[in-house]
Design a protein around this nucleic acid. Structure first.
Lengths: 192, 192
DNA sequence: TAGTTTATATGTGTGAGTCACACACAGTCT
DNA sequence: AGACTGTGTGTGACTCACACATATAAACTA
């Protein structure tokens, strides 16, 4: 009993350590590709994956930034020639659209992310990877549900950044219904 | 073959997503405890766990900050009454020491971290947790070795923040030799 | 005693945010 | 049609946690 508890504790601690390093390394791999701020890569990835032509507001809620912060970010991206603002059907809205080089950079970002991630898995056998993937999916489901609960409980005062920022939708298998986050979110409530 | 590849890719993507959320949630759980900056909690945890009475320089290398940045951080912590500067034997050095309330806050931080982490594991069975822990340890070993290599290759120009910041040494089992990071670091080279 | 190294501290600047506000357009209600 | 409210974007002023360059002080070296 006490044995099981301490083993869970060790797992929790290792999970914390690993998450921190992996996230650090991901950001470190991804940030210097462009000299944008911390949320720059996430913005490009989001636009590339599913938000191309989206509004500034949509982008802000994906990134967990203020609206004005997102405006500044889009300004920076625009100066670098990575995105363009084009008028939307809605007269007040603005469509943020990736340029050619913006899209190329987004792909480079996803590629760098994938490289940094798969290097962490390199020492695992196929079986171990499969077990790990199952556990990761379970945890992602747990967390997605917990977030949905927090959001409805705590009111919307606390703005949560998007869970899947930087995700590669092809790899996650969203189309095929293999994305645990998407599944948990849709069965429980709405989009994450 | 292509099957195995795509499964590895899915695992990598899920690992990225999970790491990001877990790290986010950890920081979110830990930051509001004190109104310190991003590196405040890590500083307190490090001091509490193994660096009490350490110098500003040591702290700076643990946190991956500049020296001056660390000086300002210690200033902030001092104003809040969480740490004190006392003179060391070495006349130019300064010993950064936790106060009573600083130590209490460090413990609250570790506690909040543990809570946020173990909630992610809640849906896993004991067996799954054990398998997961093994995989996590393997990955931590891989990454630790990779970091050591990068460091010796790339020169010391790139300052790496400490891998185990926010770790709970009791939970990780460093004393008993169960900490993969410590083991990998010591067998390969030096401290992480 | 002078010169170098190591450690801390300070002045100045910057980049990415926030907050408060202003403006533009859209849909609705008399 | 005109007024009212909600939604979306942009701007000015400010904050805050850093980095960079430099100053100062103590310790080692010769």
């Amino acid at each position: 009993m006490t044995r099981a508890w301490s083993s869970r504790q060790h797992a929790a601690n290792a999970l914390g350590a690993l998450s921190l390093v992996v996230a650090d390394r991901m950001n470190a791999a991804v940030e210097p590709i462009a000299a944008l701020g911390p949320s720059g890569p996430a913005a490009l990835a989001a636009l590339h994956e599913f938000l191309d032509g989206g509004s500034v507001t949509q982008l802000s809620s994906v990134l967990g930034l203020t609206h004005s912060g997102t405006v500044r970010l889009v300004d920076r991206l625009g100066v670098e020639g990575l995105v363009e603002r084009v008028g939307a059907q809605d007269g007040r809205a603005v469509s943020v659209v990736l340029t050619r080089s913006g899209r190329r950079m987004a792909m480079r970002i996803l590629q760098a992310r994938e490289k940094s991630l798969s290097s962490a898995l390199s020492a695992l056998t196929s079986d171990e990877v499969d077990h790990l993937a199952a556990a990761l999916d379970t945890m992602l489901t747990t967390i997605t549900l917990a977030r949905a609960e927090e959001r409805s409980a705590h009111g919307h005062d606390r703005q949560q950044p998007w869970l899947c920022r930087l995700c590669d939708f092809a790899a996650c298998g969203r189309r095929e219904g293999n994305c645990p986050v998407n599944n948990a979110a849709t069965t429980s409530n709405q989009s994450s």
